[in-house]
């Protein structure tokens, strides 16, 4: 990994009087696959549009490959963007869609032809040259949009929710496809997503955003295992998050004694981390569903609903049954307030 390739410095983005992103700082290394992750309205798409040059920042700067591009027009930045809707040109066939940008550069016809064909081969669309976008499936359109950006040899390739319009099977296929293309071309990729599973599976590093700010930045493993805030923990599947008061946890419903004294302000457990069938606490089962290797329970306790996964080997509890559980120290994730 080389040094910083894309640098956002105090980047402030506004829509009218609304500040969408206040003073964002982010460095992206060359050849890295970065996910901007967050719920809708967190500023991830806005940030991506600013990098592309489709949105002028209110203040701050954007450097790409050592050059200040803050005031550079979008068509001069050398950045590719794969739109969520693909934004293919319906009046052109697949070949001409991919060749569009090369033709604008007035390259020799032979080079246009070879680069376009190579681009289409990279995404597995050889033989589809004559098709109109409307005659292609969603997955093919997606790959066509990817090829159209890739043939321009962009410094940075941005992808807006690249997998959201695909069905589950295609999503998996496209995920491996994107990783392969990224390895082959070595292009720096930034993709925007609201789906943490997608970000975890695909990215080298994840930028978790909330309300225009970076909530946490790290590798998928770091974010998954060591979320630092309640927001990050919730996003990463810690469904039981409670405030700590002395040696017990509490929320609006009530409190439960832990039997140990944590030194963090908040504790969080995944449903997997809650022990079911034994423990000092009692609750009533309000929901139970079979999930293959385990059963997913919702237990109504002094803390309100607690989500817990129980091994399939344990006897099944029915709705209305009383169930004992424990919030063990070993599986608790300490969070800062």
């Amino acid at each position: 990994m080389s040094d910083t390739f894309v640098q956002l410095t105090d980047l402030t983005l506004t829509y009218g009087k609304n500040i969408a992103v206040p003073a964002l700082n982010l460095s992206i290394r060359e050849g890295e696959l970065i996910a901007l992750l967050g719920p809708s309205g967190c500023g991830k798409t806005t940030t991506m549009r600013a990098i592309a040059g489709l949105l002028a920042p209110a203040s701050g700067s954007i450097h790409i490959d050592g050059r200040d591009v803050t005031r550079l027009a979008a068509n001069k930045r050398g950045i590719g963007l794969v739109f969520q809707s693909y934004a293919l040109f319906p009046h052109l066939n697949a070949f001409e869609n991919v060749a569009f940008g090369l033709r604008l550069q007035k390259l020799p016809e032979a080079e246009i032809k070879s680069r376009t064909e190579q681009g289409m081969a990279t995404v597995g669309l050889s033989g589809f040259e004559g098709r109109k976008p409307a005659e292609m499936s969603g997955g093919q359109q997606q790959r066509l949009a990817l090829a159209r950006s890739l043939v321009m040899r962009p410094k940075v390739l941005l992808l807006d929710e690249p997998l959201s319009n695909l069905d589950a099977r295609l999503r998996l296929e496209m995920r491996t496809e994107l990783q392969r293309v990224q390895k082959e071309t070595g292009v720096t990729m930034v993709f925007v997503t609201h789906d943490q599973a997608e970000a975890l599976a695909l990215a080298d590093r994840i930028v978790l955003m909330q309300q225009g700010k970076i909530e946490q930045l790290g590798t998928p493993a770091q974010l998954y295992a060591q979320p630092e805030t309640a927001f990050a923990a919730e996003f990463m599947g810690f469904e039981n998050i409670f405030k700590v008061a002395g040696d017990s946890v509490q929320n609006d419903h009530g409190s439960l004694p832990l039997g140990y004294r944590p030194d963090s302000a908040i504790l969080a457990w995944r449903p997997d981390g809650v022990r079911v069938g034994q423990g000092p606490h009692q609750g009533r089962v309000t929901a139970c569903s079979f999930a293959g290797g385990h059963r997913e329970y919702v237990i109504d306790s002094a803390l309100g609903p607690v989500k817990a996964n129980a091994d399939i080997a344990l006897p099944e509890a029915q709705i209305g049954d009383s169930l004992s559980f424990d919030l063990p120290q070993a599986t608790a994730r300490p969070l800062r307030a």
């Binding site: 592309a52 040059g53 489709l54 979008a74 068509n75 930045r77 950045i79 590719g80 963007l81 739109f83 809707s85 934004a87 293919l88 040109f89 569009f100 940008g101 604008l104 550069q105 949009a145 159209r148 950006s149 321009m152």
Partner: peptide, 10 residues
């Protein structure tokens, strides 16, 4: 976004 795509392609 079709026009934006065209702009980003140059």
């Amino acid at each position: 976004d079709m026009e934006e795509a065209a702009v980003l392609l140059g």
